[in-house]
């Protein structure tokens, strides 16, 4: 997994790239969580994520819950077909913010 963080109008945009599994979830959390803790709105661009497993979905849930707790939000953007399928399999499409 690789990533790139950009800032736009006080929104942090995290572009994730590659496959997100248990082996890289800590790295993903290290990138995303400090932005949420800084109470920024975070957009996760998932266009280039070709595979995500339950560990990756757990990162999305944790990010969403942390953001809600701190009064900000995480929005999932440009979700790839394969990631959307896993989100729907987890029945989370009504719970996570899909933008």
């Amino acid at each position: 997994m690789s990533y790139k963080v950009t800032e736009e109008d006080n929104i942090s945009i995290v572009h994730l790239d590659g496959e997100i599994d248990m082996d890289v979830t800590e790295k993903a959390k290290e990138v995303i969580m400090p932005l949420i803790e800084a109470k920024k709105e975070v957009h996760l661009n998932l266009k280039d994520v070709q595979y995500m497993d339950s560990s990756g979905i757990s990162v999305l849930i944790e990010s969403h819950q942390k953001a809600t707790e701190l009064g900000t939000k995480v929005i999932l953007k440009d979700i790839s077909k394969s990631v959307l399928k896993v989100i729907m399999m987890a029945k989370l499409e009504q719970i996570l913010n899909l933008g």
Binding site: S54, S55, I57, S58, M89, A90
Partner: peptide, 9 residues
């Protein structure tokens, strides 16, 4: 909540 999803899948 995070966790338990793998077996669910």
């Amino acid at each position: 909540k995070p966790g338990g999803l793998g077996t669910f899948f």
